[in-house]
Simulated scan of single mutants.
Amino acid sequence: MNKFVITGGGGLLGSAFHDVLAGVDLTRLHRDQLQTETEEALIETIRFLQPSIVINCAAATNVEGAEQNPEEDSAANARLPGALARACKETDALLVHFSSTGCYGDWKAEPYVEADEMHPTTVHHCNKLDGEAAIVQSGCRHIIVRTGWLYGGAPALAKNFVWKRLLEARDKTEMTSDASQRGNPTYVEDVARQVMKIIDSGVNGIFNVVANGVVSRFEYVAAIVEASGLACKVRPGPAFARLAKVSPNEGAVNARLQALGIDIMPAWNESLTTYVHTLLQSHAWKTVSVHEAERISE
């Protein structure tokens, strides 16, 4: 039986693996065990645990903050993956690491495929690409997952985009959303299931793992509100000002998964509709006050 180590288990991606890894031999490494200042200690921990598979869900996700604090972003998104890769190479463990479709950059109108060149436009995505390079250069067995526009998890998660849009729509008659930026709204639990499918298939390398279908941020938000049945009109709006020059096209297609016949990712709106209905049936939705809704949706 495979022995798993997971990092970043309390975040959006990490929590999605709780169900798919139920009943397996699993060790979670906490934040204080992942500091790059203690790289040798981290490698020694992996040596001691002797896992078959390391799933690295630990990451810095503040794209705007990375422009102002690139070192902190680099520590999590470039140096940590490199340290884990060296440990996995030494112990012959498979490393599963999560990157971003934003790394492709802004040079193509169509969805990106794995063979496309990488021209990241932000500090964050440059660091993510450095993390990919460190893994490849280590020579360890690896699965690098490029994904994006992730949603899911509990309402209390700080970056629960869908929950925040529901709260906003509940207390407004009209809202706007960026009609210029495009991507694949992707449910984290679908990603976890797809990753396990890749592992079970015995293939390695780099994979796009996104829901099928590229839409604008406006279409994404409109679908959230439509699924909720709330009486709020969503209208297309301009791009919002950002410090990070995020590519307007973060859309991708799962070309390698499709070529291998192992793409199980659904259409972008299927899981979204189900997830919205789950949130509307939750205790959190039924009990959140108007004051709290206004605070959370800010």
Rank of each mutant, 00 (worst) to 15 (best):
E168N: 15
P120C: 12
G131K: 02
R47V: 05
Q35T: 06
R170L: 15
Q137D: 14
Q35H: 02
A93M: 10
L94G: 10
C140N: 02
L49K: 12
I53K: 02
E110I: 03
S99M: 03
A78V: 00
V136L: 02
N69E: 14
K128A: 04
T147I: 04
T147K: 08
V54N: 01
P155M: 09
D106E: 10
G105V: 00
K128N: 06
D130Y: 10
A133S: 09
G131R: 01
Q35R: 08
A85T: 00
M118E: 05
V63W: 09
D106P: 12
Q68A: 13
A154I: 11
I135W: 00
I43H: 04
I46Y: 05
A83N: 08
A75L: 06
E72I: 12
F48Y: 07
D73H: 05
E168Q: 09
C88A: 10
G153M: 05
K89P: 03
A58G: 02
T122R: 04
L49E: 00
I43K: 08
L166E: 12
E39K: 09
T91N: 08
F98D: 04
V54F: 02
I43L: 05
A154R: 10
K164Q: 13
P155K: 10
R146C: 13
E37S: 15
Q68L: 15
T101A: 09
T121K: 13
C88L: 03
W149E: 11
E71G: 12
S52K: 11
L166R: 14
R86A: 03
E168I: 14
D92T: 13
E44N: 10
G131T: 03
R47E: 10
A75H: 14
G131N: 07
V54K: 01
A109I: 10
I55K: 00
R165S: 09
W107S: 01
I135F: 01
V54G: 04
N160S: 13
P120Q: 06
P155D: 13
V162A: 12
H97Q: 11
Y151D: 15
A133D: 03
Q35G: 08
P51Q: 13
H125W: 11
A83G: 00
A76P: 04
E71T: 14
I46D: 03
T91K: 06
I135E: 00
E72A: 15
I43D: 03
V136T: 09
T121D: 13
T45Q: 11
V123E: 11
A60V: 00
A58L: 01
H125M: 14
T45V: 03
Q137H: 11
I43Y: 04
G82F: 00
P111F: 12
A75Q: 15
K164V: 15
A169N: 13
Y112G: 07
G102Y: 01
N69C: 02
